[in-house]
Design a protein around this nucleic acid. Sequence first.
DNA 1: CTACGTTTGTGAAACATTTCAACTGCTGCT
DNA 2: AGCAGCAGTTGAAATGTTTCACAAACGTAG
Lengths: 341, 341
Amino acid sequence: MLNGRTPSVKDVAAAAGVSLGTVSNVMNRPEVVSARTRERVERAMAELGFVRNESARQLRAGTSRTLAYVMLDGTNPFFHDVAQGIELAAEDADLSLFICNSNSRPEREEAHLDRLLQQRVQGILITPVNPDAPHLDELSRRGVPLVIVDRRRVDENCCSVAVDDVHGGRVAIEHLTEQGHTRVAVIGGPESLGQVRERLQGAREVWEELGRSADDLIYLPTEAMTVAEGRSAGERLAGLPARRRPTAAFCANDLLALGLLQQGIGAGLRVPEDLAIVGFDDIEFAAAAAVPLTSVRQPRQELGRAAAQLVLDEATNPAHEHQQLFFTPELVARASTRTKG
Amino acid sequence: MLNGRTPSVKDVAAAAGVSLGTVSNVMNRPEVVSARTRERVERAMAELGFVRNESARQLRAGTSRTLAYVMLDGTNPFFHDVAQGIELAAEDADLSLFICNSNSRPEREEAHLDRLLQQRVQGILITPVNPDAPHLDELSRRGVPLVIVDRRRVDENCCSVAVDDVHGGRVAIEHLTEQGHTRVAVIGGPESLGQVRERLQGAREVWEELGRSADDLIYLPTEAMTVAEGRSAGERLAGLPARRRPTAAFCANDLLALGLLQQGIGAGLRVPEDLAIVGFDDIEFAAAAAVPLTSVRQPRQELGRAAAQLVLDEATNPAHEHQQLFFTPELVARASTRTKG
DNA sequence: CTACGTTTGTGAAACATTTCAACTGCTGCT
DNA sequence: AGCAGCAGTTGAAATGTTTCACAAACGTAG
């Protein structure tokens, strides 16, 4: 009768001597079926090794049990921590999570979104290459719950969860000036990234407010936010004439900071005595560096968790209203900027 | 007619003035439909914003377009690199990839597998907590293509892709002895992990072959393969009486090595002069450490890619035979063990 | 003008589930 | 006896695709 193929509800029903509908009830509304038949059905399921076919369920029920997160850069642990936060929330809601990686390429991002649309996922979380890209509008228009993570749209017509990057830039520079630094490098790029622009802006704002000369805040642009780019920025730093050379650097993320740290130590610099370093994100490896890195902490998991909650609200609550959640990052001081003496 | 709901093939057919079957043909066998009607159908799809419902497709076609990877430890970048390799292969085959994380907990692993079974994924790749666990047999029995990644089953009745860990342990110790070290620490655990056992075994084998005293190969067990455990091992190392204290350490993975490095540098040790360090895996952050880490490189992406190919073969080739793929890891020497003088 | 291929298009069945109106026995009430 | 109410169960419809046997249209050769 079932020759090799995997058993269906029909087979279970036959084995338990009940109808299709009853088997379905056992799975979906166990309270309406009597203890006796429920037990009988459950035994039949176990004996046959029945596994519900999720595609069929989804097709009929119209609702999928999956969320998806499209991350921006798989090589940056930061995004994995965000994903972990999402996963925890998804688990609580008994949902699966699809994780995709756009690798900062718009066409990969679009391909992933297309896939996810076909899967009819319940909601999409994304850290987009460009939060204002038209293919994101497309999603909202289709009514797919959407949350932008770690970024914001200018028009605010979908939910987002982000961190106040301007503030992050401010606290980093404030910390360095408190430590007595008067010439500071700011490292990051490309400026096409909103994050970078805002972190820089915060740094410049506070520098100006303190009445410092713009000449003493030295911007070293990078092509990407990677360890290798951090190293290369370090070399450029070393190439500056001594009286122009900063005594501290604020990096727009921890990967850059780690690269800078490595280059500096390799070149014989003492950190923080010769060069103090502040990173951004506070990934695990920041605290684990040879000289533990001072960093502007983003609540990584919390970001993911909050985003997941928003997307679920949009998916289930008809009265949902878009929200722009904001977290305030805080500085975590470690050895890479430790006060002298 | 379609009031708000997302359009189906039926709607497309109506709009294009053709039958259901023709629309399906346009999607699946475009060569059998004339250029004229194909174009008409495609236009209708574009106008309606039609997106194929993957659940329905899968239900009818019986075949899903997804692979899944259940990773062991999301905090270790190594597994993300493996996942990346899988994703690339999946992309080539036009498949989606589900990424799950068991966090080394058997019950999470089982829950994930259950989910994946319900989704009827085309194949499962897994780095299991225990490769001989019965719930893995269950999968094979159900006929789900299965590949074990970075581990092996004793009974070899499914495919696996792994690295020769014994050899890895050997080359690490050979390298250290070549550098003149005569007292070496071996750090790793728990020994319930096959990896750890084999890496240790390789180390011990070669040590014995060189005629060294077992007393001079000092095993420091750890409870997990984390940075924190690496630090704690470093403290234990520092606590040893000077004449017993090793001049080099081989860590069973890079996270331990990074922790050890941090603790050592913090305590004023010079690396490699006072303490040489070899890690395992060669994750990105090994090369990015303040003192770039010598490590036993696993071909991380390649591992994933090969595993994906095996699972696809099992899924599509009726003549498939299980294979145990083996990669030979190689030592990458960096500053953390650089030859003196 | 017929017979026969070829090409193109059709319509209904099938996939595994959920949902829901209807049905069956009961119990207890009048 | 008749009936309302209730708990438990049933059977059929519906979901959006793919597949496949078949039909229609259109040459083309005899």
